[in-house]
Amino acid sequence: MTKGFQLDSKHLPLAATIGLFIVMFLFGSLRYTGFFSTQVFLNLFIDNAFLIVVAVGMTFVILSGGIDLSVGSIIALTSMVAASLTMNAQLSPALVIPLSLLVGTVLGFSMGCLIHYFNLQPFIVTLAGMFLARGLCYLINVESITINNEFFSFMASTRIPVGGGNFISISVIIALLVVVAAIFVAHFTKFGRNVYALGGSEQSALLMGLPVGKTKILIYTVSGFCSSLAGLIFTFYMLSGYGLHANGLELDTIAAVVIGGTLLTGGAGYVAGSVVGVLILGIIQTVIVFEGTLSSWWTKIAIGGLLLLFIVLQRVIVARSKTTQTSIASH
């Protein structure tokens, strides 16, 4: 990218996010022995690979000015489909993987169509999608299905050494590939730019002759696909399918994207920022684990606090840029 390097309001949230991550990592390192290690850092990726993938999809949705509340449920549904196809239908992973990926893609596509063609609010459509996907999980099986399959075990347990005795998992590779692809799509394809334009002003996008409807549908399809891919990674991680998997994950995802500097009103933000956002959520958990005495629910309170901080920060930035605008703008 050949963008300017000055720190204008466009980069401020992202800079704040990266700064926050560094501060938190330093804080952990100074406070806890064993915190400052490459493996602790890599574990952030290993434990949150699936969250990175969902957050990437969600970034596109939020960039366009929409919201997707169905991601957590689609992860659960994907894990359920994968588990039941593998264990009950005894299909080979070569079939199970594409079929599972199709789950979220089709759901996302349908939600996108409803949003575009009938001009429904994304919030309510994806809410329905959320119910539907969870419900479908239970239709498959109310209980958890444990996966006992060579391929899945391989995906779960393979450690890829990265030198110095440190390692990452296959899921991390997948997640990073998704991130790279998403950055490319966001900045070097027409679709990516259309997403930003749509988030900037839907009316302008229409008048500039951009394919608004197609873009909208594609955005939710991409988010659905990412959720399903995340669902597979989650399944590798848990080695089971269960309707209660990833409960409330949509909130963590939205939080990660917002903390990552993407404007909730759309139009500004970076995929890379969302990755840092996920890492911040991860590091909060790690700190709490290292602290030992702190209860895990502090995670939620901390996320809520950060969310507030970033939302207010966004309001300030938007309000400031608006006042400079309207002083000269038309009536």
Partner: peptide, 22 residues
């Protein structure tokens, strides 16, 4: 060109000129 400029203020100048026909 409308009075209320119908471009996207969140994109760069070049992007606004070329979007749709990149």
């Amino acid at each position: 060109v409308y009075q209320e400029v119908n471009l996207c203020t969140n994109l760069t100048v070049a992007e606004n000129i070329f979007i749709g026909r990149e």
